[in-house]
C-alpha cells in the first residue's frame, strides 16, 4: 500500500496528538486527582424512598469533621431538596461531599461555576466531593429535561463566612 511521505508524518502527528490527549486526561485523573462520579455512592432498592436505604440519609447538610460536610440532596419534579425552597448553606474553607439522587425521573444537578455537574438517576446515588474556599452564591440548575416544568427547576448554594455559619440544617 502506497502511503505518501507527508501522510506518514500526518499519521504520526495524529497518533502523538491522541496519546497526548489521553495523557492529559490521565494526568487529571491520577496527578491532580479529579475523580469521576462512579458506583461508589451505592444504589437504592426503592427509588421513591431513598432514606430507607443505608446509603442515603434524610435530605440536608451534615457536619462530619472539622471542616467537612456531607450534603444529601433529593431531586424531584421540579425542585431540589434542599436547594430550591431553602438554599444549601455551607461555610467557606470547607470540603463538601454531595450525595444526589432522584425520586422520580432522571434529573441533572449542575452548580454553575464549579465542578459539580452530575446526573441524578432514580435508584443510583451520585457522590462528588468539592472544596469551597470563598464566600459566594452559586446557582443550581437541572440540566436534564425532566418534564413540563423543567425550566423552573433551580436552586442555590450559599457559601458564607465561617463566623456566620450556623451549623448544618439538621
Amino acid at each position: 500500500m502506497e502511503i505518501h511521505r507527508f501522510e506518514s508524518v500526518w499519521v504520526l502527528v495524529s497518533i502523538v496528538l491522541i496519546l497526548g490527549f489521553i495523557g492529559t486526561v490521565t494526568y487529571g485523573a491520577v496527578g491532580i486527582g479529579i475523580k469521576m462520579v462512579d458506583d461508589a455512592g451505592g444504589t437504592i432498592d426503592d427509588p421513591a424512598n431513598p432514606a430507607t436505604s443505608d446509603a442515603f440519609r434524610d435530605p440536608g447538610v451534615y457536619q462530619t469533621g472539622q471542616n467537612e460536610y456531607e450534603v444529601y440532596v433529593v431531586a424531584q419534579q421540579f425542585l431540589f431538596d434542599p436547594g430550591t425552597s431553602q438554599p444549601i448553606r455551607l461555610p467557606a474553607n470547607s470540603r463538601v461531599t454531595f450525595h444526589i439522587t432522584s425520586v422520580d425521573v432522571i434529573h441533572g444537578f449542575e452548580v454553575s461555576g464549579t465542578n459539580i455537574n452530575v446526573m441524578a438517576i432514580p435508584g443510583q446515588i451520585a457522590t462528588i466531593t468539592v472544596d469551597f474556599d470563598e464566600p459566594a452564591t452559586y446557582g443550581i440548575v437541572c440540566h436534564e429535561y425532566c418534564g413540563a416544568g423543567h425550566h423552573s427547576m433551580e436552586g442555590r448554594v450559599e457559601i458564607v463566612p465561617q463566623a456566620e455559619f450556623d451549623g448544618g440544617s439538621q
Binding site: S14, L17, I18, F21, I22, V25, A29, K35, M36, V37, D38, D39, G41, T43, I100, N117, V118, M119, I121, G123, Q124, I125, A126, T127
Partner: peptide
C-alpha cells in the same frame, strides 16, 4: 458523570473515543 458506572469503564471508553479521532 453518571452514577452507578465504575470509573475504569469510563476510562476505557475515553481511550477508544480518542483513537476514533
Amino acid at each position: 458523570v453518571d452514577p452507578g458506572i465504575p470509573e475504569g469503564f469510563k476510562f476505557i471508553a475515553m481511550t477508544n473515543t480518542m483513537f476514533l479521532l
